[in-house]
Design a protein around this nucleic acid. Structure first.
Lengths: 198, 198
DNA sequence: TACATATGTTAGAGTCTCTAACTTTGGCAA
DNA sequence: TTGCCAAAGTTAGAGACTCTAACATATGTA
C-alpha cells in the first residue's frame, strides 16, 4: 500500500493523510489506528504528519470534521424534495442517520466518542446543532408548528435516541450476536410513528 | 498510587490488576488505558500481568466480564418485587440500564465496543442474552403473554434501542453539548409507554 | 524437608509518538 | 533570472509502551 512518490514534496500531504487515516479508522477502528500506519500508506516518514497536525488526536479530529460534511450532506439529501414534516421525510432522515453509521462505522464512532477539549470542538458542536436542527424543523412541521417548542424538542429527542441506539447496536453487531431478526426499515418506520403519536 | 508491598508475591494480583484496569478505564477511557499504568497502580513490574493475561486485550475482557456481573445484578434488582410486566417494572429496567451506563461509562463503552474474536466471546454473548431475556420476559408479561412472540420481540427491541441510544448520548455528553434540557426519568417513562402502545 | 510449580523480577527487542536538527523545493522580490 | 525564505520534507533519537526470555523467590504438597 506504500505509495512511492517521485517528488520530495507530496503535493497535498494533509489531504492524503486524512484519507489514509480515515481508511485505517474504518479498517482497524479508531483506537487501533496508528500515525505510523498512516505514514506508510501515504508514503512519507513518520515525522511528516507533524508539519500538518499537532498530534495523533488532531489527525482523528480532521477525519471527524471531514466526515461531518458527508453526514450533513446525507441528512440534507434525505429530506430534499419530500413534504416537510411528512412521515416519509422523517423516516428517511432516520434511515440516513443509520446509513451513515453503518457505511462509516469508524468515523461514526469517532464522531460521537471523540475526546472533548480539542481545537475544533466548538465548530463541531455547531455542526451537530445544524444537523439536529434539520430534525427539529421536520418534527415541528409534522405537528404543523412554526416554532420549536417543548413538545417538538421532546419528540425529536426521542427519535434521535432511537436511531442513535439502533446505529450502535448495528455497528457493534449486537443484533446478530443476539440472533435477532430485525427489519430495520420497518422497525424505524413503526417506532417513528409511535414516538410521534399524540 | 503505586502500592508498595512487603512480599514478593502479591496475594491476588489478577484481581488487583482487574480492579486497577477498571479504574483506569473509567479515568482515561478504554483506549487510553495502558498495561504499564495498571502495573504502577498495582505495584508490580510491567511483566507481571503476563502471568495472568495473554495480552492487554485480555485484561480489558476481564474488566468487561467483571462488569457484566454488576450489570446483571442491577437489571435483576430493577424488576425484583415489582409486578411483572407493569409499566413500573419496565421503566425501572430501562433506568437501571442507563444508570449502569452513566456510573460506569468506561466499562459500558468497553462492553459494547470490545473487539470481537476473543476467548470469552461466547460466554459474554450468553450473558447478554440472559440480560436481554429479563426485558423479553417483562414485555411478554406486559401483554399478558406467556410466549416470546414476534410482537414481544419487536417492542422489546424498540425499548432496547431507546435506552441504549440515550445511554450513549449521555456518556458522550451530547445532551449538554446540544444545550438540551432533558428530564431523563420522564423521557424514559413517556417513550416506554409510547413504544408499548397498541 | 525438598522440590516442582506458580508467580514474581530484570533485561531487552521491537513498535509507537513526537521533537530537534538538517535538507529540499517552490514561490516571490529585487 | 537569480537568490533567498519559508514551507514541507527527512533522519536520528528520546522516552513510553507491549510483550518475551531468562532468572528468582515463594508456596504447597509428597
Amino acid at each position: 500500500m506504500t505509495a512511492k512518490r517521485a517528488n520530495y514534496h507530496h503535493g497535498d500531504l494533509r489531504a492524503g493523510l486524512v484519507e489514509a487515516t480515515r481508511q485505517l479508522v474504518e479498517e482497524k477502528g479508531p483506537d487501533r489506528f496508528s500515525v505510523s500506519d498512516a505514514c506508510r500508506a501515504a508514503g512519507v516518514s513518520t515525522a511528516a504528519p507533524y508539519r500538518h497536525f499537532g498530534d495523533r488526536d488532531e489527525m482523528l479530529v480532521a477525519v471527524c470534521s471531514d466526515g461531518m460534511e458527508r453526514f450533513h450532506a446525507l441528512m440534507t439529501d434525505a429530506v430534499a424534495g419530500k413534504t416537510p414534516g411528512s412521515m416519509e421525510a422523517i423516516h428517511h432522515l432516520g434511515m440516513a442517520y443509520i446509513k451513515f453509521a453503518t457505511t462509516e462505522p469508524g468515523v461514526f464512532r469517532l464522531s460521537f466518542g471523540i475526546a472533548r477539549e480539542h481545537e475544533k470542538e466548538a465548530e463541531m458542536i455547531e455542526r451537530g446543532k445544524q444537523n439536529y436542527g434539520i430534525l427539529l424543523t421536520q418534527v415541528a412541521a409534522h405537528y404543523g408548528k412554526s416554532m420549536i417548542d417543548e413538545h417538538v424538542l421532546d419528540r425529536a429527542f426521542a427519535l434521535w435516541t432511537m436511531v442513535h441506539g439502533l446505529s450502535f447496536l448495528l455497528i457493534d453487531e449486537k443484533i446478530t450476536a443476539m440472533d435477532l431478526q430485525i427489519d430495520i426499515e420497518a422497525m424505524v418506520r413503526d417506532n417513528t410513528r409511535r414516538l410521534l403519536a399524540e
